[in-house]
Design a protein around this nucleic acid. Structure first.
Lengths: 213, 213
DNA sequence: CTATTAGTAGACTGATCGGTCTAGTTTTGG
DNA sequence: CCAAAACTAGACCGATCAGTCTACTAATAG
């Protein structure tokens, strides 16, 4: 349900009335979950197909460029989700500190829920694809820009200047993402808890900030 | 040369006097670089062997458990490097803020130097191996504990209580690591620069801190 | 009803995967 | 000098890889 950027993936996780989601969506969702679990290269197309209960022909019909096309589509979908959730969060003028803390808590909850079996999609894809998969790398640049922008909008909403907002957006993203990695490595939400506390403490009021340019 | 934890990998990057490093070390080094570039699953043993100029038999002689054994050894080597560098940094009682900033700068330098073609080993392995490679997952837990401990020692040296030191260690690690991922995704050192500035600003003096337990 | 397009279905392919195995070579130590 | 151990060497294996291709069915539209 994409609670506050959470990274859960597209809202289409539910099969509302027994009806099956379209093949294309099922492929994207299966891809996301499997890649979040074990990485891009380790997940074979056969496994994705099986998880999505789709035949091979459908994959190359919907995604003529194959696996990498699937990755690009997954990145775009998740980006939309995250941006939407962040703008929604900016709308509900809740306390910023609480919001940041909640983001960390949501991520920790997700990790625990999946028994640390899934990780953040962008991070996984970044480290596997950047040097040798140009399409995926380009999609990740776009995603990064969009998500950082949406995060910055949130800070602007709470009274930060655009410059500081962008810096804080980078920082919040980095800290949350890094804490997810540490948490997964150590199988403990300790790092995420600490990250939430710290971000809430230092990024919630437009004063202290960092060096201005 | 492992400047302040940098993540560069073992000190054995040099071939001091024309003499070739032992096969085992060459295998570990080749593994590290290739995995940092493209990930664990994407790198085949054949490629590692070629990069290390070693025959297949040597790999399974030195690492009977094969690729995963290589990963475990690489993790152990890198952990030692990082812990050593951090304890060294703790010894030279330099300004803590400067030190943190320098760590971020060193990482940014490394990313740029490699044209964003290499990423942090632990992060890459964490997201590819945690759910289905028990040996690697265990090695990562140990590595995480050791590195966080060494980082905490650094903070203790600078006057923080052990509790706060550990929290700050987690936070510094998370922020630096996450900033590396963002930087690589966006192919820009922006996130790392901001991370360095912020850590130096908020983690260098034993006062503000977070909620105590 | 028919022609066209969208989508499903899965057999098949050459390449590559990690790992095993046998044989040779080099080093060690008694 | 010689036997055991350490190490190098690479042919070989079944499994699996991403992607192609042909055949078929379902939906659309004129």
């Amino acid at each position: 349900m994409s609670w506050l950027d959470g990274n859960t993936s597209n809202g289409t996780d539910d099969a509302p009335a027994g009806r099956q989601a379209p093949t294309r969506d099922r492929l994207i969702r299966a891809f996301m979950h499997l890649v979040q679990q074990r990485g891009y290269a380790a997940v074979g197309t056969a496994e994705i197909l099986k998880a999505a209960t789709a035949p091979r022909g459908s994959l190359y019909h919907h995604f003529p460029t194959g696996k990498s096309g699937l990755a690009v589509a997954a990145i775009a979908d998740l980006t939309d989700d995250i941006v939407y959730a962040l703008h929604h969060a900016a709308g509900s003028k809740r306390n910023l500190g609480k919001l940041l803390n909640q983001m960390a808590a949501a991520r920790a909850g997700w990790l625990r829920q999946t028994n640390w079996s899934e990780g953040p999609l962008f991070t996984v894809l970044t480290h596997e694809a950047v040097p040798h998969e140009p399409d995926i790398a380009a999609a990740l640049i776009a995603a990064s820009e969009a998500v950082t922008g949406a995060f910055a909008d949130l800070f602007v909403t709470h009274g930060f200047t655009p410059d500081i907002a962008r810096r804080h957006a980078q920082l919040a993203r980095a800290t949350l993402d890094g804490a997810m990695t540490l948490s997964r490595a150590a199988r403990s939400s300790e790092a995420l808890t600490e990250a939430g506390t710290f971000l809430a403490l230092h990024l919630s009021k437009p004063d202290s900030s960092g060096t201005r340019s």
